[in-house]
Design a protein around this nucleic acid. Structure first.
Length: 428
RNA sequence: GUGGAUGUAGCUCAGUUGGCAGAGCUCCGGAUUGUGAUUCCGGCGGUCGUGGGUUCAAGCCCCAUCAUCCACCCCA
Protein backbone atom coordinates (compact mmCIF):
# COMPACT_ATOMS: atom_id res chain seq x y z
CA UNK A 1 0.00 0.00 0.00
CA UNK A 2 1.34 3.41 -0.94
CA UNK A 3 2.25 5.55 2.03
CA UNK A 4 0.22 8.68 2.54
CA UNK A 5 2.36 11.78 2.58
CA UNK A 6 1.71 15.43 3.31
CA UNK A 7 0.24 17.54 0.51
CA UNK A 8 2.82 19.19 -1.72
CA UNK A 9 3.97 22.51 -0.34
CA UNK A 10 2.34 21.89 3.04
CA UNK A 11 4.85 21.17 5.75
CA UNK A 12 4.88 19.61 9.15
CA UNK A 13 6.67 21.80 11.63
CA UNK A 14 8.70 19.33 13.65
CA UNK A 15 9.68 19.41 17.35
CA UNK A 16 13.16 20.77 16.63
CA UNK A 17 11.53 23.70 14.78
CA UNK A 18 8.62 24.58 17.03
CA UNK A 19 10.80 26.27 19.66
CA UNK A 20 11.96 28.74 17.01
CA UNK A 21 8.38 29.43 15.96
CA UNK A 22 7.34 29.92 19.57
CA UNK A 23 10.26 32.24 20.19
CA UNK A 24 9.34 34.34 17.17
CA UNK A 25 5.65 34.42 18.08
CA UNK A 26 6.41 35.37 21.67
CA UNK A 27 8.65 38.28 20.62
CA UNK A 28 6.08 39.49 18.10
CA UNK A 29 3.30 39.41 20.66
CA UNK A 30 5.46 41.26 23.14
CA UNK A 31 6.26 44.05 20.68
CA UNK A 32 2.67 44.32 19.43
CA UNK A 33 1.51 44.42 23.01
CA UNK A 34 3.89 47.26 23.78
CA UNK A 35 2.01 49.37 21.21
CA UNK A 36 -1.40 48.35 22.53
CA UNK A 37 -2.54 46.15 19.63
CA UNK A 38 -5.29 43.51 20.05
CA UNK A 39 -5.54 40.07 18.55
CA UNK A 40 -8.31 39.05 16.17
CA UNK A 41 -8.96 35.45 15.12
CA UNK A 42 -10.72 34.73 11.85
CA UNK A 43 -11.85 31.55 10.07
CA UNK A 44 -9.49 30.23 7.40
CA UNK A 45 -12.32 29.68 4.92
CA UNK A 46 -14.38 32.50 3.39
CA UNK A 47 -16.76 33.04 0.52
CA UNK A 48 -14.78 33.12 -2.70
CA UNK A 49 -16.20 36.51 -3.66
CA UNK A 50 -14.52 38.19 -0.67
CA UNK A 51 -11.10 37.61 -2.21
CA UNK A 52 -12.20 38.28 -5.77
CA UNK A 53 -13.58 41.64 -4.74
CA UNK A 54 -10.65 42.72 -2.59
CA UNK A 55 -7.42 41.32 -4.05
CA UNK A 56 -8.45 41.99 -7.65
CA UNK A 57 -9.95 39.73 -10.30
CA UNK A 58 -6.92 39.69 -12.57
CA UNK A 59 -4.17 39.14 -10.02
CA UNK A 60 -2.28 35.83 -10.10
CA UNK A 61 -3.56 35.05 -6.63
CA UNK A 62 -7.18 35.11 -7.68
CA UNK A 63 -6.71 33.83 -11.20
CA UNK A 64 -4.70 30.71 -10.53
CA UNK A 65 -3.55 30.32 -6.94
CA UNK A 66 -6.67 30.00 -4.81
CA UNK A 67 -7.79 26.78 -3.19
CA UNK A 68 -11.46 27.07 -4.15
CA UNK A 69 -14.06 24.39 -3.69
CA UNK A 70 -17.79 23.92 -3.51
CA UNK A 71 -19.49 23.57 -0.16
CA UNK A 72 -22.18 20.90 0.21
CA UNK A 73 -24.86 23.48 -0.41
CA UNK A 74 -23.22 24.69 -3.61
CA UNK A 75 -21.58 27.87 -2.25
CA UNK A 76 -18.12 28.64 -3.57
CA UNK A 77 -15.64 28.73 -0.69
CA UNK A 78 -11.92 29.51 -0.65
CA UNK A 79 -9.06 28.82 1.74
CA UNK A 80 -7.82 32.32 2.51
CA UNK A 81 -4.79 33.35 0.42
CA UNK A 82 -4.13 36.34 2.71
CA UNK A 83 -5.57 37.90 5.82
CA UNK A 84 -6.48 41.51 5.08
CA UNK A 85 -9.75 40.77 3.29
CA UNK A 86 -10.94 38.47 6.09
CA UNK A 87 -9.94 41.04 8.67
CA UNK A 88 -11.90 43.81 6.97
CA UNK A 89 -14.89 41.48 6.57
CA UNK A 90 -14.81 40.52 10.25
CA UNK A 91 -14.43 44.11 11.46
CA UNK A 92 -17.20 45.32 9.20
CA UNK A 93 -19.50 42.46 10.14
CA UNK A 94 -19.13 43.19 13.86
CA UNK A 95 -19.14 46.94 13.71
CA UNK A 96 -15.55 47.28 14.92
CA UNK A 97 -14.60 50.02 12.50
CA UNK A 98 -17.75 52.11 12.32
CA UNK A 99 -16.68 55.55 13.51
CA UNK A 100 -13.81 54.20 15.54
CA UNK A 101 -10.15 53.43 15.48
CA UNK A 102 -8.72 49.90 15.61
CA UNK A 103 -5.24 48.44 15.93
CA UNK A 104 -5.37 44.69 15.31
CA UNK A 105 -3.18 41.70 14.60
CA UNK A 106 -3.75 38.07 13.65
CA UNK A 107 -1.64 35.04 12.97
CA UNK A 108 -2.24 31.86 11.04
CA UNK A 109 -2.00 29.80 7.89
CA UNK A 110 -2.65 31.13 4.39
CA UNK A 111 -3.01 29.06 1.22
CA UNK A 112 -1.77 29.69 -2.30
CA UNK A 113 -1.39 27.07 -4.99
CA UNK A 114 2.06 28.08 -6.24
CA UNK A 115 5.11 26.01 -7.11
CA UNK A 116 6.97 25.60 -3.80
CA UNK A 117 10.55 26.80 -3.41
CA UNK A 118 12.75 28.20 -0.68
CA UNK A 119 10.65 30.54 1.46
CA UNK A 120 7.48 29.86 -0.51
CA UNK A 121 4.95 27.18 0.35
CA UNK A 122 1.35 26.34 -0.46
CA UNK A 123 0.38 26.53 3.17
CA UNK A 124 2.38 29.28 4.77
CA UNK A 125 1.95 31.42 7.85
CA UNK A 126 1.56 35.11 8.24
CA UNK A 127 1.42 37.45 11.15
CA UNK A 128 -0.71 40.32 9.95
CA UNK A 129 -1.30 43.75 11.45
CA UNK A 130 -4.13 46.02 10.33
CA UNK A 131 -5.18 49.45 11.53
CA UNK A 132 -8.39 51.34 10.72
CA UNK A 133 -9.73 54.85 11.03
CA UNK A 134 -6.45 56.79 10.97
CA UNK A 135 -5.67 58.77 7.87
CA UNK A 136 -2.44 60.57 8.70
CA UNK A 137 1.10 59.31 8.14
CA UNK A 138 1.63 59.01 11.90
CA UNK A 139 0.06 55.56 11.91
CA UNK A 140 2.06 54.52 8.83
CA UNK A 141 5.17 55.52 10.75
CA UNK A 142 4.02 53.65 13.85
CA UNK A 143 3.71 50.41 11.90
CA UNK A 144 7.17 50.80 10.45
CA UNK A 145 8.73 51.73 13.80
CA UNK A 146 7.05 48.72 15.34
CA UNK A 147 8.55 46.35 12.77
CA UNK A 148 11.95 48.00 13.16
CA UNK A 149 11.71 47.41 16.90
CA UNK A 150 10.84 43.79 16.28
CA UNK A 151 13.91 43.25 14.06
CA UNK A 152 16.07 44.74 16.77
CA UNK A 153 14.62 42.48 19.45
CA UNK A 154 15.14 39.45 17.22
CA UNK A 155 18.66 40.44 16.17
CA UNK A 156 17.62 40.73 12.53
CA UNK A 157 18.06 44.48 12.13
CA UNK A 158 21.39 44.16 10.33
CA UNK A 159 19.94 41.72 7.81
CA UNK A 160 16.85 43.57 6.59
CA UNK A 161 16.40 46.79 4.65
CA UNK A 162 13.34 49.00 4.40
CA UNK A 163 12.07 49.88 0.93
CA UNK A 164 9.50 52.63 0.76
CA UNK A 165 7.29 54.10 -1.94
CA UNK A 166 4.02 55.85 -2.55
CA UNK A 167 1.51 54.66 -5.10
CA UNK A 168 -0.49 57.90 -4.97
CA UNK A 169 -4.24 58.11 -5.06
CA UNK A 170 -6.34 55.63 -6.99
CA UNK A 171 -7.05 58.32 -9.58
CA UNK A 172 -3.39 59.26 -10.02
CA UNK A 173 -2.44 55.62 -10.33
CA UNK A 174 -5.18 54.96 -12.88
CA UNK A 175 -4.09 57.92 -15.06
CA UNK A 176 -0.47 56.76 -14.86
CA UNK A 177 -1.40 53.19 -15.67
CA UNK A 178 -3.42 54.24 -18.71
CA UNK A 179 -0.59 56.41 -20.04
CA UNK A 180 2.01 53.74 -19.34
CA UNK A 181 -0.03 51.06 -21.08
CA UNK A 182 -0.69 53.21 -24.12
CA UNK A 183 3.01 54.12 -24.39
CA UNK A 184 4.19 50.53 -24.01
CA UNK A 185 1.52 49.23 -26.34
CA UNK A 186 3.16 51.23 -29.12
CA UNK A 187 6.41 49.33 -28.50
CA UNK A 188 5.13 45.85 -27.72
CA UNK A 189 7.81 44.29 -29.92
CA UNK A 190 10.57 45.64 -27.65
CA UNK A 191 9.07 44.22 -24.48
CA UNK A 192 10.18 40.88 -23.06
CA UNK A 193 7.61 38.09 -23.10
CA UNK A 194 6.70 38.39 -19.42
CA UNK A 195 6.17 42.12 -19.70
CA UNK A 196 3.97 41.72 -22.76
CA UNK A 197 1.75 39.50 -20.70
CA UNK A 198 1.83 41.93 -17.79
CA UNK A 199 0.58 44.69 -20.08
CA UNK A 200 -2.89 43.27 -19.62
CA UNK A 201 -2.53 41.69 -16.18
CA UNK A 202 -0.40 43.97 -14.01
CA UNK A 203 1.21 46.80 -16.01
CA UNK A 204 2.85 48.48 -13.00
CA UNK A 205 4.89 45.32 -12.50
CA UNK A 206 6.64 45.99 -15.82
CA UNK A 207 8.58 48.76 -14.08
CA UNK A 208 10.28 46.00 -12.12
CA UNK A 209 11.30 43.93 -15.15
CA UNK A 210 14.82 42.52 -15.14
CA UNK A 211 14.96 42.56 -18.95
CA UNK A 212 17.54 45.04 -20.29
CA UNK A 213 15.72 46.23 -23.40
CA UNK A 214 12.53 46.66 -21.43
CA UNK A 215 14.41 48.87 -18.98
CA UNK A 216 15.76 50.97 -21.87
CA UNK A 217 12.24 51.39 -23.13
CA UNK A 218 11.12 52.49 -19.69
CA UNK A 219 13.56 55.40 -19.66
CA UNK A 220 11.37 57.12 -22.24
CA UNK A 221 8.12 56.02 -20.63
CA UNK A 222 5.89 58.23 -18.49
CA UNK A 223 7.26 58.59 -14.97
CA UNK A 224 4.99 58.03 -12.03
CA UNK A 225 6.66 60.91 -10.25
CA UNK A 226 4.79 63.31 -12.55
CA UNK A 227 1.42 61.82 -11.72
CA UNK A 228 1.41 61.76 -7.93
CA UNK A 229 -1.34 63.90 -6.46
CA UNK A 230 -0.48 66.61 -3.95
CA UNK A 231 -2.17 64.93 -1.02
CA UNK A 232 -0.23 61.69 -1.49
CA UNK A 233 2.99 63.61 -1.99
CA UNK A 234 2.46 65.47 1.26
CA UNK A 235 1.49 62.29 3.11
CA UNK A 236 4.65 60.58 1.88
CA UNK A 237 6.97 63.49 2.72
CA UNK A 238 5.51 63.69 6.19
CA UNK A 239 6.01 59.96 6.68
CA UNK A 240 9.65 60.23 5.59
CA UNK A 241 10.18 63.11 8.02
CA UNK A 242 8.74 61.05 10.87
CA UNK A 243 11.01 58.11 10.06
CA UNK A 244 14.00 60.46 9.86
CA UNK A 245 13.16 61.86 13.26
CA UNK A 246 13.39 58.45 14.91
CA UNK A 247 16.44 57.39 12.94
CA UNK A 248 14.95 54.67 10.76
CA UNK A 249 16.86 54.13 7.52
CA UNK A 250 14.93 53.53 4.34
CA UNK A 251 15.42 53.48 0.62
CA UNK A 252 12.85 55.15 -1.58
CA UNK A 253 12.20 52.61 -4.28
CA UNK A 254 10.06 54.04 -7.07
CA UNK A 255 9.72 50.57 -8.62
CA UNK A 256 8.16 49.12 -5.48
CA UNK A 257 4.67 48.05 -6.49
CA UNK A 258 2.56 45.79 -4.35
CA UNK A 259 0.79 42.98 -6.13
CA UNK A 260 -2.62 43.42 -4.59
CA UNK A 261 -5.04 45.88 -6.15
CA UNK A 262 -6.23 47.50 -2.98
CA UNK A 263 -3.03 49.33 -2.05
CA UNK A 264 -2.65 53.09 -2.48
CA UNK A 265 -0.40 55.82 -1.08
CA UNK A 266 2.19 54.29 1.28
CA UNK A 267 3.71 50.90 0.46
CA UNK A 268 6.75 49.33 2.12
CA UNK A 269 8.74 46.11 2.21
CA UNK A 270 11.43 44.80 4.50
CA UNK A 271 13.83 42.87 2.30
CA UNK A 272 16.79 40.61 3.07
CA UNK A 273 19.49 39.32 0.76
CA UNK A 274 19.99 36.20 2.91
CA UNK A 275 17.16 34.03 1.64
CA UNK A 276 17.69 33.68 -2.10
CA UNK A 277 14.82 34.58 -4.37
CA UNK A 278 12.17 35.17 -1.71
CA UNK A 279 13.71 38.11 0.07
CA UNK A 280 10.59 39.94 1.25
CA UNK A 281 10.13 39.18 4.88
CA UNK A 282 7.45 41.73 5.71
CA UNK A 283 5.36 43.94 3.45
CA UNK A 284 2.36 46.19 3.58
CA UNK A 285 0.86 49.54 2.88
CA UNK A 286 -2.18 51.76 2.95
CA UNK A 287 -5.53 50.63 1.56
CA UNK A 288 -7.96 53.45 2.19
CA UNK A 289 -10.40 52.23 -0.45
CA UNK A 290 -10.88 48.62 0.59
CA UNK A 291 -13.47 48.95 3.33
CA UNK A 292 -15.78 50.90 1.05
CA UNK A 293 -15.07 48.51 -1.79
CA UNK A 294 -16.32 45.68 0.41
CA UNK A 295 -19.52 47.52 1.23
CA UNK A 296 -18.60 49.52 4.32
CA UNK A 297 -18.31 53.23 4.94
CA UNK A 298 -15.10 54.77 3.56
CA UNK A 299 -12.43 54.10 6.19
CA UNK A 300 -8.71 54.81 6.07
CA UNK A 301 -6.59 51.74 6.73
CA UNK A 302 -2.93 50.64 6.80
CA UNK A 303 -1.43 47.25 7.51
CA UNK A 304 1.28 44.76 6.78
CA UNK A 305 2.02 41.05 6.93
CA UNK A 306 5.11 39.09 7.90
CA UNK A 307 5.98 35.71 6.43
CA UNK A 308 6.64 33.47 9.40
CA UNK A 309 8.50 30.75 7.45
CA UNK A 310 10.79 33.38 5.98
CA UNK A 311 11.52 34.93 9.35
CA UNK A 312 12.22 31.50 10.84
CA UNK A 313 14.57 30.76 7.94
CA UNK A 314 16.30 34.08 8.47
CA UNK A 315 16.68 33.50 12.21
CA UNK A 316 18.25 30.12 11.48
CA UNK A 317 20.49 31.39 8.69
CA UNK A 318 21.87 34.11 10.94
CA UNK A 319 21.98 31.75 13.93
CA UNK A 320 20.11 34.42 15.81
CA UNK A 321 18.09 32.06 17.99
CA UNK A 322 19.30 32.07 21.61
CA UNK A 323 20.35 28.62 22.90
CA UNK A 324 17.89 28.72 25.78
CA UNK A 325 15.07 28.59 23.24
CA UNK A 326 15.88 24.98 22.40
CA UNK A 327 16.29 23.87 25.96
CA UNK A 328 13.11 22.43 27.36
CA UNK A 329 14.26 20.31 30.31
CA UNK A 330 15.87 21.59 33.53
CA UNK A 331 16.13 18.36 35.49
CA UNK A 332 16.24 14.74 34.29
CA UNK A 333 15.23 12.08 36.82
CA UNK A 334 16.51 8.51 36.73
CA UNK A 335 15.59 5.45 38.80
CA UNK A 336 17.57 2.18 39.02
CA UNK A 337 14.78 -0.23 39.74
CA UNK A 338 11.02 -0.47 40.00
CA UNK A 339 10.84 0.43 43.66
CA UNK A 340 13.02 3.50 43.13
CA UNK A 341 10.95 4.50 40.12
CA UNK A 342 7.82 4.45 42.21
CA UNK A 343 9.46 6.82 44.71
CA UNK A 344 10.81 9.01 41.91
CA UNK A 345 7.36 9.41 40.36
CA UNK A 346 6.12 10.87 43.64
CA UNK A 347 9.22 13.03 44.14
CA UNK A 348 9.11 14.56 40.66
CA UNK A 349 5.40 15.31 40.96
CA UNK A 350 6.13 17.11 44.21
CA UNK A 351 9.05 19.01 42.73
CA UNK A 352 6.90 20.25 39.84
CA UNK A 353 4.53 21.72 42.42
CA UNK A 354 7.23 23.23 44.58
CA UNK A 355 9.88 24.43 42.13
CA UNK A 356 8.14 25.19 38.84
CA UNK A 357 11.12 23.63 37.06
CA UNK A 358 10.77 21.56 33.92
CA UNK A 359 11.41 18.03 35.07
CA UNK A 360 11.58 15.01 32.80
CA UNK A 361 11.28 11.60 34.43
CA UNK A 362 12.91 8.79 32.51
CA UNK A 363 10.30 6.29 31.33
CA UNK A 364 10.57 3.17 29.24
CA UNK A 365 13.32 1.31 31.07
CA UNK A 366 16.81 0.68 29.75
CA UNK A 367 20.16 0.32 31.43
CA UNK A 368 21.47 2.89 33.84
CA UNK A 369 24.09 3.85 31.31
CA UNK A 370 21.53 4.56 28.63
CA UNK A 371 19.43 6.55 31.07
CA UNK A 372 22.45 8.70 31.86
CA UNK A 373 23.01 9.17 28.16
CA UNK A 374 19.47 10.42 27.76
CA UNK A 375 19.86 12.73 30.72
CA UNK A 376 22.86 14.24 28.99
CA UNK A 377 21.13 14.63 25.64
CA UNK A 378 18.02 16.15 27.18
CA UNK A 379 20.10 19.25 27.80
CA UNK A 380 19.16 19.21 31.48
CA UNK A 381 21.56 20.92 33.84
CA UNK A 382 21.08 18.39 36.64
CA UNK A 383 20.17 14.73 36.94
CA UNK A 384 18.34 13.25 39.89
CA UNK A 385 19.37 9.68 40.67
CA UNK A 386 17.64 7.15 42.88
CA UNK A 387 18.62 3.56 43.58
CA UNK A 388 18.83 1.13 46.43
CA UNK A 389 21.48 3.17 48.30
CA UNK A 390 19.49 6.40 48.18
CA UNK A 391 16.31 4.61 49.12
CA UNK A 392 17.91 3.09 52.16
CA UNK A 393 19.17 6.42 53.47
CA UNK A 394 16.20 8.52 52.34
CA UNK A 395 18.13 10.79 49.97
CA UNK A 396 18.32 11.61 46.28
CA UNK A 397 21.59 12.05 44.37
CA UNK A 398 21.81 15.42 42.65
CA UNK A 399 24.31 15.19 39.82
CA UNK A 400 25.48 18.23 37.82
CA UNK A 401 25.73 17.46 34.10
CA UNK A 402 27.17 20.71 32.75
CA UNK A 403 29.86 21.76 35.18
CA UNK A 404 32.59 19.95 37.04
CA UNK A 405 31.11 20.09 40.51
CA UNK A 406 30.85 17.02 42.72
CA UNK A 407 27.49 15.31 42.84
CA UNK A 408 25.87 15.23 46.25
CA UNK A 409 23.16 13.46 48.15
CA UNK A 410 20.27 15.59 49.29
CA UNK A 411 17.67 14.77 51.87
CA UNK A 412 14.22 14.36 50.29
CA UNK A 413 12.75 17.19 52.33
CA UNK A 414 15.52 19.63 51.37
CA UNK A 415 15.53 18.83 47.66
CA UNK A 416 13.02 21.41 46.44
CA UNK A 417 14.74 24.23 48.30
CA UNK A 418 18.13 23.14 46.98
CA UNK A 419 16.93 23.11 43.36
CA UNK A 420 15.21 26.47 43.65
CA UNK A 421 18.43 27.99 44.99
CA UNK A 422 20.55 26.47 42.23
CA UNK A 423 18.32 27.57 39.38
CA UNK A 424 17.67 30.99 40.88
CA UNK A 425 21.44 31.56 40.92
CA UNK A 426 21.55 30.67 37.22
CA UNK A 427 19.16 33.50 36.35
CA UNK A 428 21.65 36.13 37.48
C1' G B 1 2.34 27.12 -15.29
C1' U B 2 8.06 26.93 -17.29
C1' G B 3 13.27 25.33 -16.63
C1' G B 4 17.40 22.72 -14.08
C1' A B 5 19.23 19.37 -10.21
C1' U B 6 18.24 15.33 -6.90
C1' G B 7 15.52 10.65 -4.92
C1' U B 8 19.84 4.24 -1.69
C1' A B 9 18.82 2.55 6.40
C1' G B 10 15.33 7.12 11.10
C1' C B 11 19.35 11.23 9.45
C1' U B 12 23.85 12.61 6.15
C1' C B 13 25.69 10.18 2.09
C1' A B 14 29.22 6.26 -0.77
C1' G B 15 28.15 2.49 -4.34
C1' U B 16 33.69 1.22 -10.06
C1' U B 17 32.57 -0.92 -17.66
C1' G B 18 25.60 -3.77 -15.11
C1' G B 19 27.84 -9.08 -11.09
C1' C B 20 26.28 -10.87 -2.95
C1' A B 21 23.25 -3.68 -0.37
C1' G B 22 27.69 -0.19 2.22
C1' A B 23 29.79 3.76 5.77
C1' G B 24 29.21 7.58 9.46
C1' C B 25 25.59 9.46 12.89
C1' U B 26 21.19 7.94 15.79
C1' C B 27 19.06 3.80 18.61
C1' C B 28 19.90 -0.89 21.75
C1' G B 29 23.47 -4.05 24.40
C1' G B 30 28.43 -4.89 26.30
C1' A B 31 33.83 -3.61 27.87
C1' U B 32 32.71 -1.02 33.78
C1' U B 33 27.10 -5.08 39.75
C1' G B 34 25.38 2.32 40.06
C1' U B 35 27.45 7.42 36.57
C1' G B 36 26.56 10.87 30.55
C1' A B 37 29.04 14.22 26.68
C1' U B 38 35.97 10.96 24.58
C1' U B 39 37.33 5.57 23.46
C1' C B 40 36.64 0.13 21.95
C1' C B 41 33.41 -4.24 20.58
C1' G B 42 28.71 -6.20 19.07
C1' G B 43 23.55 -5.73 17.47
C1' C B 44 18.78 -3.63 15.32
C1' G B 45 17.73 -1.19 10.87
C1' G B 46 16.55 -1.53 3.16
C1' U B 47 9.98 -2.23 -1.57
C1' C B 48 17.60 1.32 -3.72
C1' G B 49 10.78 7.02 -4.71
C1' U B 50 6.90 4.26 -7.84
C1' G B 51 5.46 1.49 -12.40
C1' G B 52 7.08 -0.59 -16.82
C1' G B 53 11.18 -2.08 -20.32
C1' U B 54 16.28 -4.06 -21.95
C1' U B 55 19.50 -8.16 -19.97
C1' C B 56 21.52 -14.66 -17.90
C1' A B 57 21.81 -10.60 -14.31
C1' A B 58 19.64 -3.59 -12.98
C1' G B 59 20.78 0.78 -7.26
C1' C B 60 23.52 1.56 -12.08
C1' C B 61 20.98 1.47 -18.90
C1' C B 62 15.90 3.12 -21.39
C1' C B 63 10.67 5.05 -20.90
C1' A B 64 6.89 6.92 -17.85
C1' U B 65 5.30 8.82 -13.30
C1' C B 66 5.49 10.96 -8.35
C1' A B 67 8.10 13.76 -4.78
C1' U B 68 11.88 17.14 -2.96
C1' C B 69 15.19 21.24 -3.80
C1' C B 70 16.67 25.64 -6.59
C1' A B 71 15.39 29.34 -10.15
C1' C B 72 11.59 31.89 -13.47
C1' C B 73 6.65 33.81 -12.86
C1' C B 74 4.30 35.69 -8.59
C1' C B 75 4.38 36.81 -3.65
C1' A B 76 4.75 36.98 2.91
Amino acid sequence: MAKIKAIRGMNDILPDQTPVWQYLETEVKRVLGSYGYSELRMPIVEQTDLFKRSIGEVTDIVEKEMYTFEDRNGDSLTLRPEGTASCVRACEEHGLIFNQVQRLWYMGPMFRHERPQKGRYRQFHQIGVETFGMQGPDIDAELIMMTARLWRSLGLDKAVKLHLNTLGSAQARARFRDDLVSYLSDHVDKLDADSQRRLTTNPLRILDSKDASTQVLLNEAPHFHDYIDDESREHFDHLCALLDSVGIDYEINARLVRGLDYYGKTVFEWITDQLGAQGTVCAGGRYDGLVEQLGGRATPAVGFAMGVERLVLLLETLQAVPDRVHQNVDVYAIAMDDESLEKMVAITECLRDETGLRIQLHCGGGSFKSQMKKADRSGARYALLMGEDERRSGVVTLKPLRESVEQKQVNGAALAGELVAIYAAEQE
